[in-house]
Design a protein around this nucleic acid. Structure first.
Length: 396
RNA sequence: GCCGGGAUACCCAAGCGGCCAAAGGGAGCAGACUGUAAAUCUGCCGGCGAUGCCUUCGGAGGUUCAAAUCCUUCUCCCGGCACCA
């Protein structure tokens, strides 16, 4: 039993420190407090964030308590991890507007029990100056400058504010506040998690185990998944969308995505990769399986099957989508198509709409359109598509 | 504080009086080919009911028939020096 516990707990992990300690904790039979802190800095939970959330869920499945910290305070400070310049600080309003929808999405990825949700403004806002000084005395400037992101910025002369030095301390203090036995994070968080150990020790607590997960590569296959880069998939996106976007990832991501995004066990992943390498399994087939697995996690098995069928209809056979959102047409006749493309959000501007028409990207019920003036009768109750992804159904 | 360099579209970056809605690259979008993959090729990539008009080259003002380009001033960045330690 313990062996399989450890297998699940460590599955997919990038780094677990200190060595052997996690095994010790799991064997102790004690119910552990497993901390995951997420700053509400963007409005959506992507598959990237979901990687650590899934990891937290593993611990829940093993009966341990998930302590999810909403970093409403730390989001206003700005995590310097992996950054080459000062992160923009969010306002309290921005944080609040993100936090609420995020919370629902977090819970979608986790089990309802055992789960503890805390907001770190609860204790961080309450710190007074003498407590902050106490906290600040735990780490030296030299220690801070060991971090590669700070070291790079320092040597390049890019400004580092003292506030940024405070960030890891606050995160570490979170661990003290919730008495974490384990803290999870992305691999860029390792330093912060280790800082938590130092701070916990200073406050007389047993230092936590730091467990980091690799950062998921985005749909572009190059950079880390992030909302600002637009290479992401959100867990609340429609099933068909998740499936479709998954199909568009480069093949070389298959292994990583099966492991991290679909959260499959190592043996299964190896088997799939072996199948691809030996030619027994076509990469497109594997990717379909991946898409279904991912959709199942957030929408269930049934929706996953539907999503796959939709995909074939839409893209493989290039059929006109049945589920295009309706859009009420203007009453003009003839209709100025570039304007319609803009007002229906199929194109950002009428000018770009024109160019899309010129490029042959615009279709009415699957038929390419030429020209800007279209008789109203040709459009009513038809589906207007731009490219393969965007479409509306034109209501009268 | 002084001297010098710089700020150009989503990002990098050319342009230094008209030929500039602004080279080139990246990103993005679309088309072809595919497995909606990658790679490749092609087109587009400020707005406008549009062979023309309007708004853009850090901000404001000016010179000029004409300014991204010249002048004044302001803001911010970068390098050097000085100051402080």
């Amino acid at each position: 039993m313990t062996t399989s516990d450890i297998t699940l707990a460590a599955r997919g992990a990038d780094t677990i420190l200190p060595p052997g300690r996690l095994e010790g904790l799991l064997e102790s039979g004690r119910s552990l407090r497993v901390k995951l802190g997420l700053d509400p800095t963007a409005p959506m939970v992507t598959l990237g964030w979901a990687v650590v959330l899934r990891k937290l869920r593993h611990f829940q499945e093993l009966g341990h308590t998930a302590v999810l910290i909403v970093g409403d305070f730390t989001a206003r400070v700005g995590d310097p991890s992996g950054k080459s310049e000062t992160r923009r600080r969010l306002t309290a309003d921005e944080v609040r507007s993100y936090a609420k929808p995020l919370l629902d999405q977090f819970q979608r990825a986790l089990l309802p029990e055992p789960l503890e949700i805390r907001w770190n403004s609860e204790w961080l806002e309450a710190l007074d100056m003498s407590e902050i000084l106490e906290l600040a005395s735990t780490v030296t400037v030299a220690q801070m400058l060991e971090r590669s992101d700070f070291a790079n910025r320092y040597s390049e002369g890019t400004p580092i504010s003292i506030m940024e030095f405070l960030y890891p301390l606050l995160q570490g203090y979170d661990s003290v506040a919730v008495e974490a036995d384990v803290e999870l994070g992305g691999s860029d968080q390792l330093w912060n998690l280790m800082m938590g150990r130092i701070i916990q020790t200073r406050y007389g607590q047993e230092p936590q185990v730091a467990l980091t997960m690799p950062l998921l590569t985005g749909t572009d296959g190059r950079q880390k998944m992030s909302q600002s880069l637009g290479n992401y998939i959100g867990v609340t996106e429609p099933a068909a969308e998740i499936f479709g976007k998954t199909m568009s990832i480069p093949d070389h991501l298959l292994g990583e995505w099966f492991r991290l995004a679909a959260d499959r066990p190592a043996e299964e992943v190896d088997q799939i990769l072996e199948g691809i390498n030996s030619g027994r399994l076509h990469p497109a087939k594997a990717k379909r399986l991946l898409g279904k697995r991912i959709v199942s996690l957030y929408w269930g098995e049934e929706k996953a099957t539907t999503a796959e069928a939709d995909f074939d209809q839409r893209f493989k056979h290039r059929e006109v989508p049945q589920d295009a959102p309706p859009f009420a047409m203007p009453t003009d006749d003839p209709v100025y198509l570039p304007g319609l493309l803009r007002s229906s959000q199929l194109a950002p501007s009428a000018s770009q709409g024109r160019r899309l028409i010129d490029a042959g990207a615009v279709r009415i019920d699957g038929e390419q359109v030429q020209g800007y003036e279209i008789a109203r009768a040709r459009l009513v109750r038809k589906t207007l598509t731009v490219g393969k992804r965007r479409s509306v159904f034109l209501r009268n």
